[in-house]
Simulated assay, not measured.
Amino acid sequence: MEASGIIVAGESASAMAYIKARWGLSPRQAKAIIMVCMLGVGVPLSVWASGSWFSAFMSVEFAIGGLVVGVLVVQRLSGPSLRKALGKRGQRADLALTLRLTPETIVYDLADLTTTARWSCVTDLYRTRKHWVFLVQSSAMVLPRRFFATPEAERDFIAEALSRMTDAARARSPDAVGMVDG
């Protein structure tokens, strides 16, 4: 059983944010820690330097505002920058992707790169808004949900994948199990 389609370079970045949360800190948690540290260090130092709580809070608020604007700019520029860099290297930004389920392995065919993993290596299968993500040891195989013509085809594919995964991996994949059980 397989699913195929075209994926654009950088498209799976949003799905990867969820991976970080499963491995430790999510991007939101990391940003919260940075904000708390900015406040915890910035306010007392600003009070010490200026002698005023009001000016201390104002300077730290402006720093946080600048950080937020900077993060938004980086997020907006990263996709086009990646595609431009690939173009300079003679690589296409839109790539053919096929994810194939065999009895022994999961095969991720992305343009000229093929990754194969035994089912025992698949640790999680979860759904994001636009993708299914297979965690394979420390790597991810991202499958856009739009590759499925119908919800039934998507459910059948995910059911097939679940049937091949270990019990422990199925237990860590409540999104997939919930979809199949309906």
Rank of each mutant, 00 (worst) to 15 (best):
K130N: 14
M16H: 13
F57I: 09
Q137R: 11
K31D: 13
K84P: 13
S120P: 01
D124M: 01
P174D: 04
A9T: 13
T128Q: 03
V43R: 02
V71A: 09
L101Q: 12
D156M: 04
S59E: 00
L45P: 01
L143A: 15
F147I: 05
A159V: 00
V136K: 15
W53G: 00
A3H: 14
S120D: 10
A21V: 01
L82H: 14
R129A: 12
A169H: 06
P80N: 03
I6C: 05
W23I: 02
M1N: 10
L86N: 07
Q29M: 14
T116I: 03
G90Q: 06
W119T: 05
D94L: 11
R170G: 02
Q29V: 10
D156V: 05
D94S: 15
T150I: 08
M35P: 03
W119M: 06
D112P: 04
R155V: 06
V136D: 10
S173M: 05
R118P: 08
I33L: 11
W119K: 04
G87M: 08
S78K: 03
F54Q: 07
M38L: 13
K88D: 06
E104A: 10
S14L: 07
I19T: 11
V71Y: 05
E11G: 12
V142W: 01
S46P: 01
V8A: 09
T166L: 02
I7Y: 09
E104N: 08
R170Q: 11
S52F: 03
A3F: 13
T114M: 07
M38E: 05
P44T: 07
K88T: 09
R164A: 05
S173F: 07
V47C: 08
G182Q: 04
I106V: 15
M16I: 12
Q75T: 15
V122D: 00
W119L: 10
V136F: 14
L82W: 11
P174C: 03
P151Q: 12
M1Y: 15
D109C: 08
A85K: 09
E104G: 09
S46A: 08
C37N: 11
F157R: 04
A32C: 06
A176Q: 08
G70I: 02
S46Q: 00
